[in-house]
Structures are given as structure tokens and as C-alpha cells.
Design a protein around this nucleic acid. Structure first.
Length: 521
RNA sequence: GCGGGAGUAGCUCAGUGGUAGAGCUUCAGCCUUCCAAGCUGAAUGUCGCGGGUUCAAGUCCCGUCUCCCGCUCCA
């Protein structure tokens, strides 16, 4: 029946357009021209987002015996971020080339190289050579010439003129220069990725505080409170969902990188390997466990396994707190990108908070009869990134042939979000086949009301039946119920399934129970 | 921040100095016995925002904001 659209044909624009059209996601502050790096979730998107979060909470907290949930403050004591290393490390030193490329670099990504200074001499007029006030830093004259041809010739308007490139004697030195145009670099400026605000009525005298760049620290500083009150022994986890803020240099790619975003993080506290007895899972084994567990979660909720993969961070690229990090990457329309990070944070965070707060956060292990600081495995997922992945993976366009048994069937396009039923924003829609028959309308409304008592259902009669189905397909509604003229006779209705478009006849008095079974199964 | 591209109806876009348009969507009515049907009618725009040139600006100029692509970043 349907020619499925290739994965590579789904562009981000297609998803953005659908999101706006169907009330899933809008640009933030839209009527004021937008605010970079912010997005608002609409009527349908709010349901989808809630469902994603609930699915995570269900897997990570509800279905497990070893994880507790918390909900901590967005504003934390400034000392938290000193202890966590974010004040010091959560910064990018940036510098710009003073050459014509004007390129910007991470200062720590530029390697020191031995270069000499080259100057340009305009010898178009042989009798009066003119030395230009421009310097190019390059390891060789050949390289300097390349830079000249790529950037300087045009920038300085020297096309068609004869220019000699001369090395300045004794200028050879080791330093950092733009690898693109040989220009000097500006001083590195520290760009901290944390957003801040002030607490207190008078701004000048009030305290500067940071908006959290990750939810994890709220968990670490509550570790002992949560452990003691939940009467937990190792290993156990603490989970949290909530907003985080990062002053990203360049928010980009729809909701993939935004300045305000929502995280789903779990800190799993476990015994360091050396304290484990025979048969106990070590920290590295838990790391392995959570890598796979989190991958399976995405598959469970409908992501095609072929669109998921692991990426192990090489040691030299690890964050300041990490002993090992694996990303779960998803094949977005923009390419393979991080969906979730699973980090082995060692005992970095608790140790830091012990030192800075003066509180003892060690764990007393009755089996080993000793104190130690637990190790932490952290699966950290982005709600918005997960939503985007679910949307991209669920999106498909099909050519549908209407009409009976293929004779003179008319072809049309249908857009379907094949979302997992737990994620679908609307679970069921109820229609009267004909809206000018009061008894059909009344029955349909009654069914919708009954469904609404346990799930999100809608009633709609503002179009022909085909259009009503397609509207629901676009937002991934798994089931549609249609009340027709026969319903009055046989006391039954048609239930149409989204993906197969198959219809089954269900007695009126059983339709709610039927859908409840289908949706929970 | 730098370079390139773009902002006109809810969406996709046309409109190259002279009365703001089309298709789709949305809404209402009629009709319609299950997959975007048909007919009739309607709504919606300070042409991203601000300034300038001109008798006249969506169109030309300046500024500014936002979006997209690249450098950088990561949940």
C-alpha cells in the first residue's frame, strides 16, 4: 500500500513545519519576533513532552526497586558550583583571528606552532616597492602564500597587483596563530556557560546566583538526606527531571540545542569495585548495565535500533568530572548527534561537596566494615532531544489509495506519526460519520466523555471522515472511533487503528474497555 | 561574535517603484453511509521592526531583530 519515505528524506524543516502546524512546538516569544534558543510547547507538544517524561519516570523510578525520585531547586547555593567545578571548568576560552577570516576559536584547541612573520611588499611599481601594514604568521613561506591567496589578496584589494611575500628576519617564534589565515589571535576571553541572576530586592547589594546548568548537583547535595530518609543501602539511585540553563554560544537546530532545556537525570550510587564481594556488581558493571538499559529504553518506546548507536568518549575529551562517558547517539536529520550521555562520575562530586561543605558524605559499608565515598553512574538524558528523536523516528509519509478494491482508486498522501501509544499526545479520537444526525453526534460525544475519564481523548466533527482521520494521523493518535448510522441499529462502532488503517466493529458498551485494553497492553 | 542565505495570510510561496495576491489550511452553511470529496460563503496581513530617499516603497538605502547554513558547543 504505502511507499515509505526514506529516512534520509525527512528533513528537520519537515519536522519543524509539522510541529508548528499541529501545535506541537512554537518558536519562543513568537509574537515579539522570537528569542534565540527558546521554544514553547503547544497543546499537542505539551502532552507529548509529558508522556516522554512519564515514560522515563516509569522506567527509571516506578518499575524499579532501587531508585528514588526527587525534585530539587533550580537555584542553588553559589558554593555548589564552585565545588562541582562548573565555575572553573564550565567555560570556553574564546579568541578571534585578527586576520581577514575573522574566525573564532576555542583558545585551548589551538596548538602552539613555530611561525615566522611575513610581510607583503607591493612591487607593481618596480621603482617604488611599498611594504604593506599587514602581517601573516606561518611556519613556511609556502603556507604564507596560501594564506595570502585565500584571504588577504581579496580582503586588501590586491588582485592583479604584484605582491612579494617576505619573511621578517628574526621574527621566528613559537606561539598561537590562526591556522586559517595566519592572523594574530585576540586574547582569550572566558565565556562561562552558566546563566546567572541575582537574589535580593536591591540588585547592587544582592547575591549573584547561577541557574543550574545540570540537575545533577541538586541530587548530590541531597544525597545524604535522600539516602537516610529512604533507608537505602548501596547500590541505589536518585532520579530527577527538571529544567536546566546554559548560555550556549550558538543555540541551533530547532530544539536540539537550546538555552533552556529539560533534563532527565539519574545518579546511581554504587560500591567501588575494590569493595565489592564475590557476586556483587562493581561500578564498571553498573556502568555497562546503564548503558544498555538506556539504549533499550529508546527501543522500547519505538526508536528503530538502526538509528541508535554508542559513542565512547576518548579519554582526553572527558569532562572534568568523568572517568568514562558513553553517548547514546541518534541519527537525526542533521546527522548522528548525542541523545543521552552515560557518565561514570567516580566519586568526584560527593568528594568535592564533602570538602567544600565540611559534611561527611561517606557511606558506611556494614559488610566491609569501612567508610568510603560511593561511585556514581549517571545516565543523563535531554527531554527535548528525546522528543525530537521520537518525532523524527515516528514521522512518515505514505501514499494511500482510496476507493473499493483498487478500481479507480484515488491516490493521496498521508502524514503519520507512528508514535508509541504511550507517547501519543491523544490516545483516541471519536467522530460521528455524519454531523447532521443528532443521535450520532450525541453518541460520539458520550463515548469521548467516557474515554476522557481515563485518558486523553478528543471529539471532532468539523470535517469529512477522511480528513478527520488524517488530522489524527499527523499527531499520532493510535485509535479513532466512528459512530455511523448502523451504530443505532447494531449498537456497535468502528475502531480504526492508525498504522494499519484496519477497522474493527466493537459493541458500544464494550468500546471503552476495548480501548483501555489496547492502550495499556 | 565572523562569513553566507532568508524574513509577505496559520502553512508553502508569487509579487523587481504605482490599488497586497494564489494554492493549501481554518471557520460557517448545504451536502455526504468510513480515509484530505463537492458546492456556497467567510476570516486572516501595520509585507520582521525602526528610520531614510521618493509625488509614490513589499520593492531602493541605512540600522536593528529573528531564523537557516558554516566555525564552536553538547542534554
Amino acid at each position: 500500500m504505502a511507499d515509505k519515505l526514506q529516512r534520509s528524506d525527512v528533513t528537520l524543516d519537515t519536522i519543524v513545519s509539522l510541529c508548528k502546524r499541529r501545535g506541537i512546538i512554537f518558536p519562543g516569544s513568537d509574537i515579539y519576533g522570537g528569542l534565540q534558543g527558546t521554544f514553547d510547547y503547544g497543546p499537542v507538544g505539551a502532552e507529548l513532552k509529558r508522556n516522554v517524561k512519564n515514560a522515563w519516570w516509569r522506567s527509571m523510578v516506578q518499575e524499579r526497586f532501587d531508585i528514588e525520585g526527587v525534585d530539587t531547586s533550580l537555584l542553588l547555593h553559589p558554593a555548589v558550583w564552585t565545588a562541582s567545578g562548573h565555575v572553573e571548568n564550565f567555560t570556553d576560552p574564546l579568541c578571534d583571528s585578527l586576520g581577514p577570516s575573522r574566525k573564532r576559536y576555542r583558545a585551548d584547541h589551538i596548538e602552539e606552532t613555530e611561525c615566522a612573520k611575513f610581510v607583503l611588499v607591493d612591487v607593481t611599481d618596480n621603482a617604488a616597492p611599498k611594504t604593506l601594514d599587514t602581517e601573516i604568521w606561518a611556519p613556511t613561506k609556502k603556507k604564507a602564500k596560501e594564506f595570502f591567496q585565500q584571504w588577504y589578496e581579496k580582503a586588501l584589494g590586491l588582485e592583479g597587483r604584484r605582491v612579494k611575500i617576505e619573511e621578517v628576519e628574526g621574527s621566528r617564534t613559537t606561539g598561537r596563530f590562526s591556522p586559517d589565515d595566519g592572523g594574530r589571535l585576540t586574547e582569550a576571553r572566558q565565556f562561562n556557560l552558566m546563566l546567572s541572576t541575582t537574589l535580593g530586592p536591591v540588585e547592587e547589594s544582592s547575591a549573584k546566583v547561577f541557574l543550574r546548568p545540570e540537575t545533577a548537583q541538586g541530587i548530590f547535595i541531597n544525597y545524604e538526606n535522600a539516602r537516610a530518609t529512604a533507608r537505602r543501602k548501596l547500590p541505589f539511585g536518585i532520579a530527577q527531571q527538571g529544567k536546566s540553563f546554559r548560555n550556549e554560544i550558538t543555540p541551533r537546530n530547532f530544539i536540539f540545542r537550546t538555552r533552556e532545556f529539560e533534563q532527565m537525570e539519574m545518579e546511581f550510587f554504587c560500591k567501588p569495585g575494590e569493595f565489592c564481594k564475590e557476586g556483587e556488581q562493581s561500578d564498571m558493571e553498573w556502568f555497562e548495565f546503564w548503558r544498555n538499559e538506556r539504549l533499550q529504553w529508546y527501543i522500547r518506546y519505538g526508536i528503530q535500533p538502526a538509528n541508535l548507536r554508542f559513542y565512547d568518549h576518548p579519554k582526553e575529551k572527558l569532562s572534568h568530572y568523568s572517568r568514562g562517558t558513553t553517548d547514546i547517539e541518534y541519527l537525526y536529520p542533521i546527522g548522528w548527534q548525542e541523545l543521552e550521555g552515560i557518565a561514570h562520575r567516580g566519586n568526584f562530586d560527593l568528594t568535592q561537596h564533602m570538602e567544600h561543605s565540611g559534611k561527611d558524605l561517606r557511606y558506611f559499608d556494614p559488610d566491609a566494615n569501612t567508610h568510603y565515598v560511593p561511585y556514581v553512574i549517571e545516565p543523563a538524558a535531554g527531554v527535548d532531544r528525546a522528543m525530537l528523536a521520537f518525532l523524527c523516528d515516528a514521522y512518515r509519509e505514505e501514499i494511500v489509495t482510496s476507493g473499493e478494491e483498487g478500481e479507480g482508486g484515488k491516490e493521496s498522501r498521508r502524514v503519520v506519526l507512528g508514535l508509541h501509544k504511550d507517547l501519543a499526545p491523544v490516545k483516541a479520537a471519536v467522530f460521528p460519520l455524519l454531523k447532521n444526525r443528532p443521535e450520532l453526534v450525541e453518541t460520539a460525544k458520550k463515548i469521548a466523555a467516557d474515554l476522557k475519564r481515563f485518558t486523553n481523548a478528543v471529539y471532532d466533527d468539523t470535517a469529512a471522515i477522511g480528513k478527520l482521520y488524517r488530522r489524527q494521523d499527523e499527531i499520532g493518535t493510535p485509535f479513532c472511533v466512528t459512530v455511523d448510522v448502523d451504530s443505532m441499529e447494531d449498537q456497535a462502532v468502528t475502531v480504526r487503528e492508525r498504522d494499519s488503517m484496519q477497522q474493527v466493529r466493537i459493541p458500544l458498551d464494550r468500546v471503552v474497555a476495548y480501548l483501555r485494553d489496547q492502550l495499556q497492553g
